[in-house]
Design a binder for these strands. Sequence first.
DNA 1: CCGTGAGTGTCACTCGGTGACACACACGCT
DNA 2: AGCGTGTGTGTCACCGAGTGACACTCACGG
Lengths: 202, 202
Amino acid sequence: MSGDERTGLRERTRRAVRAELSDLAVRLFLERGYERTTVEDIAAAAGMSKRSFFRYFPSKEDAVFGEAEDVAEQVAEAIRARPEGEPPWACLCAVLREQQEAIRSAQPGLRTLRLIEATPALRARLHAERDRMRELITAALREHSGAGLDAFTADLLTGTAAAALEAADREWMRSDGAADRAALLDRAFALLSPSAGGQGIR
Amino acid sequence: MSGDERTGLRERTRRAVRAELSDLAVRLFLERGYERTTVEDIAAAAGMSKRSFFRYFPSKEDAVFGEAEDVAEQVAEAIRARPEGEPPWACLCAVLREQQEAIRSAQPGLRTLRLIEATPALRARLHAERDRMRELITAALREHSGAGLDAFTADLLTGTAAAALEAADREWMRSDGAADRAALLDRAFALLSPSAGGQGIR
DNA sequence: CCGTGAGTGTCACTCGGTGACACACACGCT
DNA sequence: AGCGTGTGTGTCACCGAGTGACACTCACGG
């Protein structure tokens, strides 16, 4: 190897091209729509061949989702680090509250989110991503809570937590990004835990 | 028109071919996997051309999902028919309990469900379907509950209900179809409504 | 017997995605 | 200097899901 200060030259240029390509792709999708923009359009606009596009992204969708660092691993880790004997729902709430910044920074911004929302293929992809994460988190939660937590209840718990996150996200989008996401998440959890004194979900 | 007893001859034969084709497709998918089975394989096995397959189903996926009658419309109707002033969560629980037979008879059976579970493309499609239904139901719920129910809470409610249904379904699949789905759904709702006396989710 | 229309096969095409090959360029080595 | 070698690239050929267009063939009613 040669002059690889920090992260290596090749890796750096590759990342730069990827980012530029992703940016370009999203811009074109927003202008002309996802379906009406072909991979060849993007490649041509970037001055490369279709084949080269696929050397940067395994699929057209991936140009939108870009990196999507695996925040699920981090959340799972945080769950395992929780005090033993803590009730699973409290554990989930606490971790999601703690990690919400990390979760969101790993997700697309408002304008990209709108694009995804409006495009069936991208929505499907987002769902798949979230499903994968939920599975990891469910496993971590069961590991944390021992034999007292059956698979059924664990599914229900993570499913409910996902609903809270999603409702908060949707409300945030409705407000054009103006709403306080942390406060929304708190509100969602409060509604789901009527014991806390609120009027709850009922 | 000619001899159209009941539903019309053409319509009947069309339905019959569709059903046969769908059956054949699912069988092939289970044998050789969804991705490794081409539309041409299915068409050939059914003695028709690829083009004709697409005259019966708009896409390969649709051969699996078949009819999927719109049960969401029915559920929305049931929500609107509920007594005025009923709290939204109670309304949701009651309607989903009442309609669960209808909901399930409109959904694929165990073996098809497993196929879907194992195939990313089909999972995505199922999610999309469920999303569409959830939107209809959310709208109906807001209509039923008047101005007291904001969009955020409505999203949270239907999202949570969806989590209950999904958890019940997953447990049912885990039990190879042996579990009592109605009882599972009741358990899920009970866990989500700790006020009822159970230990709840916390 | 003749029209009409629905169902079909065939062909050509688009678009996402993959494999194979050849070329160019930058590096490290002797 | 010349030589490999690895990495990025373009090109070409291909597959599979869909779509559009056109021609054919039956079964039907007139």
